[in-house]
Design a protein around this nucleic acid. Sequence first.
DNA 1: CTTCAAACAACGGATTTCGACACTTGAGGG
DNA 2: CCCTCAAGTGTCGAAATCCGTTGTTTGAAG
Lengths: 173, 173
Amino acid sequence: MHSEVVASRSADQRDSPRESRNGNSPQLDAVSLAIIQQLQEDGRRPYAAIGKAVGLSEAAVRQRVQKLLDQGVMQIVAVTDPLTVGFRRQAMVGINVEGDVESIADALTGMSEVEYVVMAAGSFDILAEIVCEDDDHLLDVINKRIRALPGVRSTESFVYLKLKKQTYMWGTR
Amino acid sequence: MHSEVVASRSADQRDSPRESRNGNSPQLDAVSLAIIQQLQEDGRRPYAAIGKAVGLSEAAVRQRVQKLLDQGVMQIVAVTDPLTVGFRRQAMVGINVEGDVESIADALTGMSEVEYVVMAAGSFDILAEIVCEDDDHLLDVINKRIRALPGVRSTESFVYLKLKKQTYMWGTR
DNA sequence: CTTCAAACAACGGATTTCGACACTTGAGGG
DNA sequence: CCCTCAAGTGTCGAAATCCGTTGTTTGAAG
């Protein structure tokens, strides 16, 4: 009744489970999409309930979910507003680069204060979101670490005042 | 050793479980922080395992987690890179506003294509992340919907080329 | 036709979830 | 000082879930 799904010789890549799921787009089928959608609504929804919703057995759902996690296509995590959890300063930093953009992006990816890195088109080459404990920490990261990277031409910072919305529900529309 | 936390007779508030957890910062204690950290590593980790890690009973962890979810402090969800899941165009939009910034932010919050809204300091008043299916859709949202809002003075868009990092692990450092 | 690997369903035991009840502690109020 | 109330925590048992295993089917390759 439902078929295809990609080959995907499983798990031998042992690299980071949550960074840069780039390279290959595993070509998700409708069933996997439906599973992801279920888990976007509730990351703890039981496998059996998901199976009923998408027309698969509990075991099959479990296999699919495990594979999606292993492949790095999806993470199931708790998400918070850092400002409510003790991190007092947060900012988006727009960065202009001369030379290899991707190597700069990789360097940012390695910084623990940087939660989000995107290569973009427009007046910034890279957008990076930074989470810090206080002003000193933020200043340090931006001025001492990011601006110090060779190839960074300029940066512009946007300090967060208030987080108004944060969703992961593209599936529900 | 650990205390406060509310009763949480469960679920009767049916409002949005995931938008604007602003207003009150519920003042989290160290134990709740530790619980959140556990769930940032694995959103499906069993309560008993979390309890062992943070020094609490399973039931106590269950109550705390439920309360954190009810309060909107935390969500447990599946997170993906939209680009790998069929959404071909994604962008960050910087917005300048004249008049009431918050009402514009609220309007953006109501749009399903807008996944992320932040009020910021700097050369933009608001940053909004948009997820669309294709170029036409993106163009429509930016030009017809966002720019049409009364009070929006100007916008600048940064189309995403590649998502390099996306984590929620501030707890682990 | 045979072989092989992947996906799935079925099953059973271990684990987890979840509601209910009881105990402890601390803050007020009479 | 005692009482009461509220919040947090621990224990327990039944129901549900998770998870490894096994066997079947399907599709592609040899």
